[in-house]
């Protein structure tokens, strides 16, 4: 019985990790004032990058770096197009998601001559092989990295000078500009971080599955955005919301579909988010200047 419960907790955690990492990434981008719908594509690109580098080099740790860089690459396009190009953030995100889907599919064909999946590979090796599900999760280096990143991200956003400047870029860009710090550079930093975190989320997915499959992000980037909103644009809050969503997904796998329709559980995260958005469970306030390109006042150099 206890073993079953521990197994279930391990499963919830395992499922929640990619959501949490991506949601934290979303928080960094949006705290700086840049809407990041491209998160879905960042996850997918990150997963592909991690798989491609791991297969090419045989070293999963290089794959982790490759996945993060691939995510950051897509994010930096989003940043350039929206911050300096001043293009619409929502449209840029949607276009990049289309780009990521097409490019990874094409990449599968070119690199692995397959329309559906890459070659299989070994993920990051675990520390020891305990027979309990929870202990084996705790022995996974990537899981430990994810936990560290979650708390580290929260501290970075709320306890450091950079975090304060980033939040100012989203809430009061004019004031940040007044201090002499660059609004656009800080926003780009936030977007770039969302690329690293989103790429790591994709890396986790692909390392769990030991191969890349077509469209494997499967809407997780959008759920992560939802979790970020439920978590009120705070890394720890977002991670908690992801645990909730992860629990819903675990139930979906484990509960008999005759008792509760699996589709209801599948839709649960979205419905919960709708309720939160509507303000029926506490109000969620986005950063004040979210979605607006920053424009300097005349006469400032």
């Amino acid at each position: 019985m206890i073993e079953l419960a521990l197994g279930m907790i391990a499963q919830v955690l395992r499922i929640s990790v990619p959501y949490a990492l991506a949601a934290i990434g979303g928080a960094f981008s949006e705290r700086g004032g840049v809407i990041n719908i491209a998160l879905e594509g960042i996850l997918l690109t990150g997963a592909f990058g991690a798989a491609a580098v791991t297969i090419a080099t045989g070293n999963p740790w290089l794959g982790v770096i490759g996945g993060m860089l691939a995510g950051a690459l897509l994010a930096s396009i989003h940043g350039l197009v929206t911050i300096w190009g001043r293009a619409d953030q929502i449209l840029s995100g949607l276009a990049l998601n289309l780009l990521a889907l097409g490019a990874t599919r094409g990449g599968l064909k070119i690199l692995y001559d397959s329309a559906s999946n890459s070659d299989r590979f070994e993920g990051v090796p675990a520390l020891g092989r305990p027979d309990s599900a929870l202990l084996s999760l705790l022995g996974q280096p990537l899981f430990l990295v994810a936990v560290a990143v979650t708390f580290g991200a929260h501290a970075l956003l709320f306890r450091t000078r950079f975090g304060l400047a980033l939040r100012a870029a989203g809430d009061g860009p004019r004031a940040l500009d007044g201090t002499g710090l660059s609004v656009n550079l800080h926003r780009f930093g936030g977007v770039l971080l969302s690329g690293f975190f989103g790429g790591l989320a994709g890396t986790w997915l692909v390392m769990e599955q030991h191969s890349f499959t077509d469209g494997m992000s499967n809407g997780r980037g959008y759920i992560a955005l939802a979790a970020m909103i439920v978590g009120k644009w705070r890394p720890l809050g977002a991670a908690l919301a992801c645990l909730l969503f992860g629990a819903a997904e675990t139930l979906q796998i484990r509960v008999d579909s005759d008792v509760v329709p699996t589709q209801l559980l599948q839709a649960l995260p979205y419905i919960v988010t709708l309720v939160v958005l509507a303000g029926w469970i506490g109000r969620a306030h986005p950063p004040l200047h979210l979605g607006e390109p920053y424009e300097r006042e005349k006469g400032r150099s």
Partner: peptide
Amino acid sequence: LLDVLQAVILL
């Protein structure tokens, strides 16, 4: 590649 092209045109 054509999907990529569509996305690039959009961007």
